[in-house]
Design a protein around this nucleic acid. Structure first.
Lengths: 267, 267
DNA sequence: CGCGATTTTGATCAATGTCAAAGGTGGTGG
DNA sequence: CCACCACCTTTGACATTGATCAAAATCGCG
């Protein structure tokens, strides 16, 4: 049960040269021009590799670092007093981790590496000063956090409103879409380092039930999933099955927005 | 079924004088000094009042405005293709609404006024320019969005890991805590303009079941709730019942944080 | 007093949990 | 190359939560 020590992590092995960062455009550093990369290069602590299973940070602890996830998967989860736990999100490369409104307060969830992971680490001390001095970073931070919020809202709908089968379909589709910006391809093998327990913990159900539902999805030839590999066999069918959001709330006219200037109707 | 027109909303009635804004410290404007309030005063469109039931914005539509919620409650919800829907959050005064990473993209959820509501409206055009010019605003935006994200994570644990009864207890406690910064008082009547349907839609269960669970909570003399009024009778008991997050993941020592400099154990 | 909305209640049923055992499957070391 | 082990997945029997539906009771309000 005991997790590997949280403190083991290799010395920098990825060059601390941000210009060479292969996923710069996905991270919080995206808006920086080549010539401005120096501001994060001098601020950052360095790049590190952590083995699968180690913790980036733990719920309840103060936390002193912020992380650009450069490679690998990280799972965020929360433990309740009763001991039950909930997966909040799967963080993919580009994600910014460890930030909270009050950097002096404790973390409200834990982050555990699902795979070997490489991260670029910032000290959280003076981080607000950094982004205030470089407003494009602050704006970018707002944007990425808002993205995370939208994903979280999707998950809420997933657990709250969708059947478990639809939830599984939606979760897997969402992970695919976030892994590869761009259209999804059928038949292609996609590496998803999750087992049925992870899916169950994310969806708030049991792994036994996930197993049954996956069988259904397989039987309907919508996907195949196992051993960390996902193949989408019928994208359209799967999307339908996943009960995606209504494009527009209902069939109503889509044109007029809220226009407060044009007072009417009520008073 | 038809909602009141989305376009009805009175002309400004709250003074556009931001210095007099009674909840400035809760909003995105919080970091601005008195002498700098001009930057939002000249940017904003104005303050408006909307009647209960009207929509601030609708899922699927482009959206052209951003909102500081000054007074009243707003519910955020998402509709799925199958027609089922999920309440994502209840927005309280101070909340910043309508923002998304790509301001040109459509909104992914709707915002509906639960009560009469007053809002301070910004155009979203040039908003990014505004906060880039005034970095304290951008930093503050990151913070408030991150707060929203943490609330959303709590909700995930609510729906996914808690029993419905515990979920109700947690939801109500959370709303109280967010309404009044500071310690909560027992016995005091708190206005919560929700009915059992809202709670059910937020928790992803049926109102019939909420009714039963509320009966239990009442029977155990933990709270009374009805007619838009909540009374917490036994704060400690309710908190216990609500299965709050574990203060620290487990009993382990809390001192050593991840210290990448101190390489060890693995290589 | 009466109406509409909300809440309560009960009967029944489907979805999902629980538990336990049996089968994979891949990795490791002899 | 085989045997074993840990971990993951599948399966089945059964228990329980929570959904569904409908009717009755209640409440707020005019």
């Amino acid at each position: 049960m005991k997790k590997p020590m949280a403190d083991n992590c290799s010395r920098p092995n990825v060059p601390v040269n941000c210009q060479a960062c292969p996923i710069r455009h996905l991270t919080i550093c995206q808006p920086l021009q080549d010539e401005n990369l120096g501001v994060v290069e001098t601020f950052k602590i360095g790049d590190f590799v952590l083995p699968a299973g180690s913790l980036l940070y733990r719920q309840g602890e103060p936390g002193s670092r912020l992380y650009n996830l450069l490679d690998g998967w990280v799972v965020l989860h929360q433990v309740l007093r009763s001991g039950s736990h909930q997966i909040l999100d799967f963080a993919l490369p580009g994600r910014f981790l460890g930030y909270r409104p009050d950097l002096d307060g404790p973390l409200t969830h834990s982050a555990e590496c699902l795979t070997d992971v490489s991260v670029c680490i910032f000290p959280q001390q003076h981080f607000h000063m950094l982004i205030e001095r470089h407003p494009v970073l602050a704006v970018r931070l707002s944007q990425v956090v808002t993205q995370d919020l939208e994903v979280s809202y999707d998950r809420l709908a997933n657990i709250g409103s969708r059947s478990t089968q639809a939830g599984i379909a939606h979760l897997l589709l969402d992970l695919c879409a976030r892994l590869r910006d761009g259209p999804m391809s059928c038949g292609q093998v996609i590496e998803i380092p999750l087992n049925q327990n992870h899916i169950a913990d994310a969806l708030g159900c049991t792994s036994a039930y996930v197993s049954q539902m996956l069988k259904l999805l397989r039987k309907q030839r919508l996907l195949s999933f196992g051993n960390g590999q996902l193949q989408i066999l019928d994208l359209k069918g799967l999307a339908e099955f996943a009960d995606i959001e209504a494009p527009s709330a209902d069939g109503r006219q889509n044109r007029r927005l809220l226009t407060p200037e044009i007072s009417s109707t009520t008073q």
